[in-house]
């Protein structure tokens, strides 16, 4: 009979078993978070835990900004003020025209029994930083669930669409930029009225239009705006300008690169629009459209999501 020496230390499971346990748990987290998006509440809790350290880490740069503001030259401020007034005056006729055009459009839409879209209201949010992750293109804004922000809301700058709110924390939110690989936007080419989809190119900071047939009339300098088909982005927001069009005879589609208009890194603030109500499927513009076939938004999205 083998005698076992008395155990001096209680050791628990073997190190290798522990390692396997934690690795399995990590892999489970990755799968659940990346594919099923079910860990948002947990992520919010972790972010809440980190919030005080984040505030502390942001304070030096904020203090520096405040310091810089205090030392702004009065003549500079006056010049800027004058420039802004001038800009306002220059835009005033267009604005007045816009109001009458909007009224005309609404009347016409009523006659044609097309559902009218109200441009949603929004809140102005300060940009507090860039997400510290070299794999994604995201910015952090200083407004969260405390101001009633919702995941999925479109985010604009002065020049155009910037992105979409993807994670809402209590006091901050993450905005995925339109150059992010996972963001898809349904677009309208203003010159020809063609509808298409834009995908982000990731790190390069450009967009590409992968589903435009070879023979389509599109050229560098064309302006792309949101088409409003998905019911997420309101119609007519400026998104991008076509940079280059390459027609490779081997491929069925043209290779098109676009430059986003919403220059997010120039500004300190962005506008977050409220989410629109879901459109009544019987009255979406998709059915009224008589343009080239567009792949179904949702199917394409599903295919592209990692």
């Amino acid at each position: 009979m083998a005698l076992r020496p008395p155990e001096l230390f209680s050791r628990g499971p073997a190190p290798l078993a522990r390692l396997f346990f934690y690795c399995a748990l990590s892999l489970a987290c990755i799968v659940v978070d990346a594919h099923y998006h079910q860990l948002e509440l947990f992520r919010k809790a972790l972010n809440l835990l980190l919030a005080p350290i984040q505030t502390l880490a942001n304070s030096p740069s904020q203090a520096l900004q405040a310091f810089g503001k205090a030392w702004d030259n009065q003549s500079d401020l006056q010049a800027e003020n004058q420039r802004l007034r001038q800009q306002l005056l220059e835009q005033a006729p267009q604005m007045q025209q816009f109001q009458s055009l909007q009224a005309d459009l609404n009347t016409l839409k009523q006659l044609l029994q097309i559902q009218q879209q109200q441009f949603p209201a929004g809140i102005i949010a300060p940009i507090t930083g860039v997400a510290r992750n070299p794999f994604t293109q995201k910015i952090i804004i200083g407004v969260g669930a405390n101001k009633g922000l919702e995941s999925g809301s479109p985010v604009l700058s002065q020049e155009g669409l910037v992105g979409q709110v993807t994670t809402v924390n209590l006091f901050s939110s993450e905005v995925s930029l339109i150059t992010n690989k996972n963001v898809v936007i349904p677009l309208l080419l203003t010159r020809t009225g063609m509808r298409t989809l834009a995908f982000g190119n990731g790190e390069q900071g450009t967009l590409s239009l992968p589903y435009v047939p070879m023979g389509t009339d599109i050229r560098a300098g064309d302006v792309l705006v949101t088409s409003g088909i998905d019911g997420l982005y309101p119609e007519g927001l400026s998104v991008a300008t076509v940079l280059s069009v390459q027609r490779d005879p081997v491929s069925a589609f043209a290779q098109i690169r676009c430059q986003p208009d919403g220059a997010v890194f120039k500004h300190r603030q962005v506008l977050v629009l409220n989410r629109q109500q879901t459109l009544n499927p019987e009255h979406t513009e998709l059915e009224q459209a008589d343009t080239a076939p567009v792949p179904h938004t949702r199917a394409v999205r599903k295919g592209r999501k990692p």
Partner: peptide
């Protein structure tokens, strides 16, 4: 660290 870097939860943990 994953929450701080806003990456997929579990990557740094692994």
């Amino acid at each position: 660290a994953d929450a701080a870097d806003s990456s997929v939860l579990g990557i740094h943990a692994l």
